[in-house]
Simulated scan of single mutants.
Amino acid sequence: MTSLPPLPPQPAGTPWPTEEWPLGDLPAGMDRARFDALVDAPFVRQHGDFGETFAFVAVHKGRLVYERYGPNHGPDVTCPSWSEAKSITQALVGILVDDGKLDIQAPADVREWREAADDPRRAITPDLLLRMSSGLAFIEEYLPDRPSDVVEMLWGKGKEDVAHFAASFPLAHKPGTFYSYASGTTNIVSRCAAQAADAFGPDFESFMRERLFEPIGMRTPRPKFDKAGTFIGSSFCFATPRDFARFGLLYMRDGVWDGRRILPPGWVDYARTPTWQQETTVDGPYGAHWWLGLGGRGSFSANGYEGQFTVIAPDIDLILVRNGKAPGVTEKENVRRWLGKIADCFR
């Protein structure tokens, strides 16, 4: 097992941002000219190399040390999560695991797979779903001229019941033998979570707020549900950049917030433990509904379509949030590299 860097505690004397973010300064020894030039780039060149940047927030050692917003955006304007919502879903699963209502190593409670006793999909566990290793056939494609199961799920014939749509796919590989990033798997997990909580639609939203958002001061999240009452955990939970940073701080602090444990012990380590991937994988290292390595060695991040990022770098106690619209592969990769360079400014 890969050694994980320790998660730093909240520094003594630093208030928790349950109400307001405590403010701080950029590190005294930082190359400020380099940092300023890097931060300027996506805001000055809007719709250029980085696409459109809505917001950038930096939290260092528990304090908000820098934020900047693009036109028509500011601290109170919500931004799309896209697949950052997958990491929120992972947190909700952790809460239910801690409640004793969900076992991620047991077969997933999926009715579509229980219809036949010999259905090989019955071997799929929530753990395999969280690690994108279910083996289900699913095409994760966003280009308009290519076949796409995710587009059909979110906006086509699957939109009214996203979990049923995703659970209806056959196996392409034996469960646990092949990594393949697929938004459908998250929506299956999301329905499993709702079943475990015995709460769908508004009731599940209340669960989200009472057990996750409100305890850590996230006041702005707007999760979206399908007509079946399933949280579309693959893609839709709007929030302000500051609230995405609060979510990042919860994971930086090992699931504990101001002395209260929100996530079970070891759940953050589970999120950032690498998933096995075949050699042909081009996505980059992945944990359990969290990406790995974007902000340097030992970092992990919630990543979303068109360049939504919440990056956690434990070695320097740094959280970076970027929201915007990077429409192409090149622009998104530029944003990824840019965030890595920003993190290095703090080292």
Rank of each mutant, 00 (worst) to 15 (best):
L4T: 03
P15C: 11
T18K: 06
W21Q: 02
L23Q: 14
D25N: 15
L26E: 08
P27I: 12
F35T: 10
F35A: 11
D40K: 14
V44C: 07
R45P: 03
E52W: 12
F54W: 11
F56N: 08
A58T: 07
G62A: 09
G62W: 02
L64Q: 05
L64E: 09
Y69P: 10
P71G: 08
G74R: 04
C79T: 15
S81R: 02
S81W: 00
S81G: 14
S87W: 00
Q90T: 10
L92R: 02
V93T: 10
I104K: 07
R121K: 13
R122P: 08
P126Q: 06
P126G: 04
G135I: 08
L136E: 03
E140V: 06
D145A: 12
D145S: 12
R146I: 06
W155N: 15
G158A: 10
G158L: 06
D161A: 09
F165S: 06
A167P: 11
Y181S: 10
S183M: 05
S183G: 15
N187L: 03
A197H: 00
A197I: 01
A199V: 09
F200G: 04
P202N: 12
D203F: 00
E205C: 13
F207A: 07
M208V: 09
I216G: 11
M218S: 08
T220Y: 02
T220K: 02
F236K: 09
D243A: 13
D243Y: 09
L250H: 07
Y251L: 12
R253S: 07
W257I: 12
D258C: 11
R261P: 04
L263M: 06
L263S: 09
W267S: 03
D269N: 14
Y270F: 15
T275I: 06
W276R: 14
Q277S: 11
T280Y: 10
D283P: 00
W290L: 08
W291M: 01
W291K: 02
L294P: 01
G298W: 00
A302M: 09
D315W: 00
I316S: 11
L320Q: 02
V321N: 04
V321A: 04
G324L: 07
G324I: 10
K341H: 13
K341L: 15
F346G: 05
